[in-house]
Amino acid sequence: MSSSVLQIRDLRVTFSTQMGELRAVRGIDVDVVPGEILGVVGESGSGKSVSFLAAMGLLPKSATITGSVELDGVELIGAGRKAIRSVRGKSLAMVFQDPLSALNPVHRVGDQIVEMIQSHQDMNTHDAEKKAVELLEIVGIPQPDERALQYPHEFSGGMRQRVVIAMAIANNPKVLIADEPTTALDVTVQAQILEVIQRVQQTFGTAVVLITHDLGVIARVADSVNVMYAGRNVESGSVQSLFDHPSHPYTRGLLSSLPHEGIERLNPIAGFPPNMLAPPSGCGFAPRCQHATKACSAELPALAPFEDLLTSCIRADELRVGRRS
């Protein structure tokens, strides 16, 4: 799709570790459409963070990255450090779970935003300060002109995350990647932060990649979804289709493992995710899949169109029958 602002093709990330080669990401395609919120869900260790850290150029040297990541048609994989640095924090910005890791404890938050602006834009300090206060206001910080003069420790967890979002959007990025931005927050504060993210998306048309393990969060704010498992993208599509008629056995298992009113017993997925030092030869979900056959372990199933989704299950068609029972 050429309409994507961020286009990832066959991205692979392997870490060399003392225990061997850890194949964290094993060939994923991602299309981030301008102005959309793309939700990324999946089991812990499925490669969600690593995929987007690779796109941001933030992985350690132990990582070998192949494939293509294009931001507005410009290739980032293999681009020089300088090129990456000019993109990171400008057209491509990232927000993490722990806001403190993104803030400098000894600088006033206003100054940190100013620095972020001036490192990418030619703006005088007076204007940048004004813009910093505006940004704090946009993310819902009361008395932004006074708060700009305070230090990170003077903010609550939720307020710090707002500051980090203000910094991330300071240079009007095309894509904002938010990796579990609300996981450490209380649910009432999470609701506020999700609203801020939606406001940013709607006001500036920023595309957002929202990484989360919470399907409720996806249901609330995402337009489309990528489901990851064992370093692969196993299913993707619009949020409505995916929740309404998931096709991949993992997606279906994930959705039906959630508690809901009136059920006596929950439905776990048996087993646990594979060790990525020695991933299964074929479908990564096969060891836990109740529908697995020999053919499933023969080769990695490709992500292919199925109904209105993209699904990587060789049996998706057969399994459609009785799906909604």
Partner: peptide, 27 residues
Amino acid sequence: KALLSAVPLPNPKVERSRHRIMLEGDV
């Protein structure tokens, strides 16, 4: 009531139509 309304439910139709109470500030 606010706490229950803040919990995201894994159902896009419900999530997009239900009324949400937004609490201000933190504890």
